[in-house]
């Protein structure tokens, strides 16, 4: 952690924090800090990039907008909410971090997160690894056929796709169908054993949503709407997210 004192210039008005406060219920309590440090002492990201949650909030309060809007710490923080959970004043530091992420020009946000978001926008599957509807169907059917043929007692195992009116709509993290498809089989066996009425879908099956992590609100919403429509179009009652 940095031991250098932070030098304040002339009295500066905190524009960034004020802006975020207008967006949050009760202003996210962002002016209620007791400076106790419970947030920082239990934050795994404390010390990274010379920052911690308490310092981040205090700097925002002191109007050091330039510094907090350029620190890469907002990408070290995982928005896990532990700081908010332990805070006696319930200060919404994670929302402050999220809005700091959002203030970065989109093309300067971390390339890996941005690429995963952009990839998910290419197909209606919402797969961040770019798997298409055809890819998904092929892999699921191929793995199912192999399990039925090679595993005694599982000749009737099912992995329904686009089954209208199923009770549960199950999505799938792209990592399984793309890189380790055999890992899907245990899940199917559990669903089969309990007699669940479930289905995959060719549209909206990707469980992940990197546009949310990218703080790209427009595309975050777009992806959620594609997925929700896929659930509604099949008339499923529950949407089960495996992510």
């Amino acid at each position: 952690m940095s031991t250098q004192p932070i030098k304040l210039g002339k009295q500066r008005k905190s524009l960034f924090k004020d802006k975020v406060m207008q967006l949050l219920p009760d202003g996210g309590n962002l002016n209620a800090c007791l400076t106790c440090g419970a947030c920082a002492s239990g934050c795994p990201a404390t010390g990274l990039a010379g920052m911690d949650p308490r310092k981040f909030l205090r700097m925002a309060s002191m109007g050091l907008d330039e510094e907090i809007l350029k620190t890469e710490w907002v990408w070290n923080c995982t928005l896990c909410w532990r700081c908010l959970y332990v805070c006696p004043m319930k200060i919404d530091i994670p929302q402050l971090v999220y809005h700091a992420r959002k203030s970065w020009p989109r093309d300067e946000r971390p390339k890996g997160i941005r690429a995963s978001c952009d990839m998910a926008l290419k197909h209606e599957t919402c797969s961040a690894m770019g798997a298409s509807e055809e890819d998904f169907r092929f892999v699921v059917e191929d793995v199912l056929e192999e399990a039925r043929a090679n595993q005694p007692g599982w000749e009737n195992l099912e992995a329904p796709i686009n089954k209208s009116g199923a009770m549960y709509f199950l999505n799938q993290n792209s990592r399984e169908p793309v890189t380790e498809p055999d890992e899907m089989v245990p899940l199917w066996k559990i669903l089969h054993t309990v007699g669940a009425d479930w289905t995959y879908a060719t549209k909206g099956w990707g469980a992940e949503n990197y546009c949310m992590f990218l703080a790209d609100d427009e595309n975050w919403e777009r992806i959620v709407r594609i997925k929700a429509k896929a659930v509604d179009d099949l008339g499923c009652k529950y949407w089960v997210n495996t992510e």
Partner: peptide
Amino acid sequence: NNYCCGGGGGALQAGYTEGRRHF
């Protein structure tokens, strides 16, 4: 009260590998 493992929030894709492991 548990601690986050550090894989979420986009961290696995963010590219700050050293920071992610320190977390």
